[in-house]
Design a protein around this nucleic acid. Structure first.
Lengths: 245, 245
DNA sequence: GAGTGGTCTAGACCACTGC
DNA sequence: CAGTGGTCTAGACCACTCT
């Protein structure tokens, strides 16, 4: 296991993070093969001129990502399985883009409406208070993929139709300084009604994949409530889960 | 913020874990209210007779769970939102049971078959090599909920039909000493074929929710490949996601 | 028994936030 | 400016695994 590792103490990047990046890259590029032992922490610390807690912090971050497994009395091993990307709070737009699908968005509605009881409860605003409502058709290669209906609390974000057509909602939120923290999602299926079928280019009664989501920022505010429907032949939810240790 | 905290140095439970448990319980029971500041780490360490790194480890574990948020220069706050259970590698059986749904299982098939190309690839075994195949109908309150088809590599587990009818597959695996590590899942939808429709008590062409999954243990072995179909009126996937920091 | 990770200490300096 | 979390050190002892 002759792995070249080094840290730059002049860098503003934390030492443990530099080490974690190098180890991750080594795993990614096959220089650290699955099942191989990483070598003990003390020796690694000595070789790099770091303290053991710092090395441990680097290793722990990769254990949390599911790339390494520690066994007391044995050592730290590279996981065999093909962990690619653990589940993230994903943006459909980004998913499509990174899959090379050339996403496009058609904004159908961008307005302010009074909140229904359900929406008020989800967003934690007063019933009949104003909320933003946006409806979008998401396309890939010109074909409709999904119909997205979202509600946002007032005053959170400037919802410019041009921006909504150029990128995803989550990216706009992050750009506005909102720190996304968690989301509650429900994924189901149902038959298409006549209107949705027509919008998505499906037959009435065709199966649709549905997703309902409330997203919270790091202060606990609900920042978005959405009900989305997807054409199941064109999209499915795919993700990697890690067992919480 | 007069919170009673104490640690037992005689206990085999790690100190950071004791502290984390007490803080979590305090949040759970409302003694630490959402948005309240936790008090700085140095003071907390002094009050408990612990070192700061130990206190930080406790706090960090709750940050990882999504219960706390740290802000540099500000402090550590209890998150407002209703984080209940973050996404786990869930067992349908356990989900139904904890929802009070009285799950039952009817084992339809429990046999050994040669692996098809797809199954061999998913499980990492030789094509046409032997694999276990089990087909189960999962019921709640006597109503069919899902049809589960699973493949397991040979020699991993004794698949006793009686046990399969009494509990879930994951629970049997854990009981056999298998440490589940990660899973790759795909959730989609499609129309019911005639056979599946009849098994689940739906009409042909009715929408079905589908899930395909490969589960890995901590050595990286694939331990299970499954294709499941669910009645969308009776079941949906619901989970809380945390944004990876 | 030798070697591993798991836990813990008592300090230190820095970067960021808010007043 | 004071106060916070973020990072880092150089040790220590313990629990577990393997031979």
């Amino acid at each position: 296991m002759q792995l070249e590792l080094s840290v730059d103490r002049g860098s503003p990047v934390p030492l443990y993070f530099q080490l974690a990046q190098q180890l991750e890259a080594a795993i990614e590029h096959g220089r650290l093969t699955p099942g191989s032992l990483l070598g003990n922490e003390i020796e690694l610390a000595g070789r790099l001129g770091l303290s053991r807690p710092t090395v441990r912090q680097a290793i722990q971050s990769l254990v949390d990502k599911g790339l390494l497994v520690r066994r007391r009395g044995v050592g730290t091993q590279v996981v065999h399985s093909q962990v690619k990307r653990p589940l993230e709070l994903s943006s459909l737009y980004d998913d499509l883009e990174s899959a090379g699908q050339r996403p496009a968005t058609k904004v159908l509605v961008n307005t302010v409406v009074p909140a229904s009881a359900e929406i008020a409860a989800a967003l934690g605003v007063a019933e009949a208070g104003e909320v933003h409502r946006i409806e979008r058709l998401r396309l890939a290669h010109g074909e409709p993929i999904a119909y997205l209906c979202n509600y946002l609390p007032p005053g959170l974000l400037d919802l410019d139709t041009g921006q909504l057509e150029a990128t995803g909602l989550y990216r706009l939120m992050r750009a506005a300084g909102i720190t996304l923290h968690s989301a509650r999602q429900t994924i189901g299926a149902r038959a298409a009604g006549a209107v949705e079928a027509e919008r998505l280019g499906e037959e009435t009664g065709a199966p649709l994949l549905t997703m309902e989501r409330v997203t919270f920022d790091d202060t606990g505010r609900a920042v978005e409530f959405g009900t989305h429907i997807y054409r199941p032949g064109r999209y499915s939810f795919e993700f990697q889960l890690l067992v919480r240790p």
